[in-house]
Computed example of a mutant assay.
Amino acid sequence: MATEPPQTPEAGELLGREFITAVVIFHESVGRLLGLTAVERKCLDILARRGPMAAKAICEHTGLTSGAVTGLVERLRAAGFVDRQTDPDDRRRIVVSLLPNPKLDEIRARVFGPLGADMAALTAGYSQEQLLTIADFLRRTTDVLVANTARVGAM
């Protein structure tokens, strides 16, 4: 099922906006299953991928202010998803860790198992060269989004 690439910059921008909207709405839906916002759920994802991290690092990865991260971590702690400890090497630093959570594991399996299968089926239709191009696009798009998140956060 080949599709025609966007023929104008406007059509390319619209396609990008539709994609980003679908991602955000998907993660809002997943967050709702856990009683979380998309940002709170993605914070859990960052901790799952990167392991325990300082609150300051969460600020850097999310573009949120330290006050916003403090509130986010408190909500996640109260809901039983994370623990926060004072760093033994620097008592001014708080380290946030993901806690084992059967509900989170069950939701991940129910949601991301089928999504992973669908994405595997989707990518099976692309050549290795096309997949390398897609990976390059995603890496560069991520870099652009991270840079612009920082720019917007500094406003």
Rank of each mutant, 00 (worst) to 15 (best):
D89C: 12
V82N: 02
L47K: 10
D89N: 14
T65C: 08
L72Y: 02
E10Q: 13
T86D: 12
A147Q: 13
V146I: 11
A2P: 04
G153C: 03
R139L: 09
S29R: 14
D89E: 15
S97P: 02
A150Q: 13
L122R: 11
P88R: 09
L131E: 04
G116Q: 00
M119V: 05
V24P: 01
R91Q: 14
Q128M: 09
H61R: 15
D105S: 13
G125T: 03
D83S: 15
G80Y: 02
I20K: 06
R91W: 07
P100Y: 04
D89R: 15
G116A: 04
T62K: 10
L33Q: 12
L33R: 15
S97M: 06
I20S: 06
L64S: 06
A120K: 12
V73I: 06
I58F: 08
T3S: 13
E129K: 09
R151N: 05
I25H: 12
H61Y: 13
V82T: 13
P88I: 07
F137T: 09
K56H: 14
A79P: 00
F112P: 00
R50F: 05
D83W: 04
P52C: 13
L138R: 06
I58T: 07
V23N: 10
A68R: 12
A124Q: 10
L104H: 01
E28R: 07
R32S: 02
D118R: 09
V111W: 00
A78D: 12
R93S: 09
T37F: 00
E10Y: 05
L104F: 06
N148S: 09
P88Q: 05
L47Y: 07
C59Y: 00
Q85G: 03
N148W: 08
D136W: 11
D90G: 05
S66H: 04
I58S: 01
G116R: 02
D83A: 15
R77Q: 15
T133G: 12
R151T: 07
T123W: 08
G67P: 00
A121T: 10
P9E: 06
